[in-house]
Structures are given as C-alpha cells and as structure tokens.
Nucleic acid binder design. Sequence first.
DNA 1: CTTCCTGCAAAACATTTGCAGACTT
DNA 2: AAGTCTGCAAATGTTTTGCAGGAAG
Lengths: 150, 150
Amino acid sequence: MGPHTMEAICQKLHDKAYKVTPQRQVILKAFLDHAQEHLSAEEVYNIVKESDPEIGLATVYRTLDLLADLEILEKMNFDDGRSRYEFAGEEEHHHHHLICLECGKVMEFEDDLLESLEAMVAKKTGFSIVDHQVKFYGFCPQCGRSRAAN
Amino acid sequence: MGPHTMEAICQKLHDKAYKVTPQRQVILKAFLDHAQEHLSAEEVYNIVKESDPEIGLATVYRTLDLLADLEILEKMNFDDGRSRYEFAGEEEHHHHHLICLECGKVMEFEDDLLESLEAMVAKKTGFSIVDHQVKFYGFCPQCGRSRAAN
DNA sequence: CTTCCTGCAAAACATTTGCAGACTT
DNA sequence: AAGTCTGCAAATGTTTTGCAGGAAG
C-alpha cells in the first residue's frame, strides 16, 4: 500500500523475491501513464506493445494477476465482459465508480461514508467484512443532456 | 416490476408480444423454485433439464437475456467468472450482497441508506443516477470461526 | 400461416496453462 | 548456476451466433 511509483513497486517486487523484468516494468509504466483509466488486459497489451512489440498477451495476464495478488493493482468488473485494473487504493481510502449506461464512461467518486455502513452490516449479519465495492449506474452529464433533448 | 409470479410474468411477455413457450416457463419456474439463490446459466440449465431434457443451453442464455432486458431478472457478477441472475428488486427496494471470500457463499442484506448517498453523489458529480450496486467482501460466520481457530 | 423460438454445432471471446528457451539474480 | 519468467500455441470455460426445422399466436 505504498505510493504508486516505479521505484516503490519494483522495490516491493524485489523484497518479495519476484524478478523485476522489463515486461513487468513496462506494464507498470502503462498504469502510471494512464492513471484513473481502468485498463483491461487487452488495452494494457496494446499500450505496451509500442515499447515492447515482442511481449505476449499471456505475460500481461500473468503480470496483472501478480500485481493484483500483491495488492498493487485492484481487479474490477464493470460488466463489460472483461476485467479491468487500476492502482489499489491507499489504506482504507476507497473510491467508488459511476458507470454511464449510455457511453460506458467510468467516473470516480470519493467517499468514506460506507465505513460506518460496513460496521453496521457486520453487526447485523455476523460477517467479518474486509472490503466493499460500490457501483452507481446512471447517465453522465453529457449523455444526460442529449437524452433530455430527445 | 410487478410481483414475481408465473402468471404476472407470462402476462408481461404476452403484452410485449413475446411468445410464452414451455422453455421460458420452465426457466421461470427454476427461479421461482430457487428464490434468493443467484443461479448461473449452467445451474439453470441443469435444473431445467430435469423437466425438459431436450432443452438447449443456448435457449437458457437467450431466455436469461430476454428476462434481464424486461427487468424481470437482474444480471449480476460475483467475480466467479460467470454471470448470475435473480429476480429484479421491486421498485427502489434494494438489497445488497455479502460475499464470503472463503466459501463463496452469498448472503443478502437489506438497506435503504444508500438512497441518500445516491442523491449526494448525483449532486456532486452531475450524473443522473438510476441504480446502484453494493458488494461487501468478508468471511461468513462459519468461515470466520474456522479461520480464527487457526 | 407468419413470425418468433428452439436445438444443434460451430464460433467468438476472455483467460489460463504446458512447455522449451531466455533472462534475472 | 538456479530458478523464475517469457512467448507461443493450445486448451479452457463462458457466452454468442447461424441456420434449418418446429411451435406459438
């Protein structure tokens, strides 16, 4: 859960005895260069092919898996048939996602209000809760406007 | 958004000029018989094959799609690699899901507190929000207990 | 009767895996 | 040098689609 810099992450890989390969670095760079973009494996692959045309899609998948296991990336699902990834939130500081039902755009939204709900849910159900995910579905300002015009 | 009875749903199909076929009825019956179970297409297929051994998996998929389009079923994703379905909630009355990270069990939880959060998010972001989905991840009472014992 | 539905088989996708060679440490 | 990591190709699992026959309205 350190900062999301190339150095810090490579250090973490090194500390855990994972090798710091050029492929892994180039994939990390893709996320650093596309912050807040919720990239899919295929998208990462396309970005990364420009610096390393030899890279294989399987390597991208394996690296995304690894980075998600290390909690450097977070794997998420926006109901578009593929997994997407973004840097994991620092500590408990969550953000949630607003998904536009028209254009598919994903916007982010900060909120800590869910922590208290989490505690309440734990008490009521007996679950020990370690995480939560919230998605809002609606229409973004642009699409909402054009819909209203119809 | 009517009640979830065979009659009401067949009526709705009829009203929208969809044919009421035995396959569709048998699939609906599977959901009526397995309320609150979040069935996957494959699971529906296996249930339904007992009454209609001739049915095809493709028909199950097409029917689930149709019922989700009509907002009779809701398609959901519990990160287990397949879509799952349950009856769509009546009106605005949502329930949320608690997913056990150990055994995969899904529990339900009623709460309306999110409605106010929804309004706040709408105001802050300019989205017009039509729905939301909340998932909590943790350990159910049984799994939590055995984990504590280790 | 007309049109929509169905079952089958094949196709389409996203993701995973086996393996031999290449590279990090 | 040892063990991990990579690229490729093949395999997997889920979901979709084309088509010809069959059934609902």
